[in-house]
């Protein structure tokens, strides 16, 4: 393993994040605060409790997931798309590094940034609502796994994208609906039976459910199934990336 290379990519990518640290933090904090005001205060005053938890607290895990998933994808997809766009990818391709090292550097940095933002949103949430985290280690575990797996997916999108429009397309058309319909703001059990069944085909449901379990000890689906779903998703992404580098698809002529 060329660990020096992994570290170099990671540090280089993090530097991009720190250059724009203000935007990186202000925007998610602001949007989360808005969610709390709109969903927590306005709508929450009419919904008393969901599964024994106040509505304001109930949406916290979902809101964190929403931001973390979006951030992981956008950071990672931009991180690898940008060198492709400006041509600096030649250096990666000619360096003595394999696909795993490139992925660890880029995805590691993208996941770290998303994790930072997740933690900041969690801190912001404490300002608005009272809640406890019942399984803090599981909570951190879920958060980290989510950051990594969606950063992997973002990496694939970044390599696939041929222009900036395509870079936005997948997050906008696929990820945002999946996250919104994944139980960020409600419990799946609140849906009519048909939609409950359909929801089980949405991978994000398992993530949010597992994450919410780590906060409140109750979940829409079993915790084992949640872990299995996220592990499966991560493996799938890794397999796709391995194939990309093996065939040189969209990166090496």
């Amino acid at each position: 393993m060329n660990w020096t290379a992994v570290k170099s990519i990671y540090v280089f990518e993090m530097a991009r994040f720190f250059r724009t640290i203000t935007q990186s933090f202000i925007s998610p904090v602001l949007s989360t605060s808005l969610y709390f005001v709109v969903f927590g205060a306005a709508i929450g005053s009419r919904i008393q409790e969901v599964e024994g938890v106040s509505y304001g607290a109930f949406i916290v895990p979902g809101l964190i997931m929403l931001s973390v998933i979006t951030q992981s994808i956008s950071n990672a997809s931009f991180g690898i798309y940008f060198p492709k766009f400006i041509g600096t990818i030649f250096e990666l391709l000619s360096a003595p590094v394999n696909f795993l090292e490139i992925v660890m550097g880029y995805v590691g940095a993208a996941a770290t940034k998303a994790l930072f933002i997740g933690v900041i949103i969690l801190a912001t949430a404490f300002l608005f609502v009272d809640f406890e985290i019942q399984h803090p280690f599981a909570m951190v575990g879920f958060l980290v796994l989510t950051c990594i797996s969606f950063a992997l997916m973002g990496f694939i999108i970044g390599i696939w994208a041929g222009n900036f429009e395509q870079l936005q397309l997948v997050p906008l058309l696929i990820i945002t609906p999946l996250v919104f319909l994944g139980g960020s703001f409600y419990s799946i059990s609140m849906l009519p039976p048909v939609w409950q069944i359909i929801s089980h085909f949405n991978p994000v449901v398992y993530l949010i459910s597992g994450f919410r379990w780590s906060f409140f000890g109750s979940a829409d689906v079993s915790i084992g199934l949640s872990l299995f779903a996220i592990a499966g998703f991560t493996t799938l992404c890794m397999a796709v990336i391995w194939w990309i580098f093996k065939t040189g698809w969209r990166i090496r002529q």
């Binding site: 400006i86 250096e91 360096a95």
Partner: peptide, 27 residues
């Protein structure tokens, strides 16, 4: 390799991008 096209990260500092290259090659 010194490529023909000028491919450089526009917002990066000169010495950081040079250090990055060294690290990328495992040195």
């Amino acid at each position: 390799l010194v490529p023909q096209e000028i491919n450089l990260e526009p917002f990066e500092k000169v010495q950081n991008t040079v250090k990055f290259s060294r690290g990328l090659f495992g040195k």
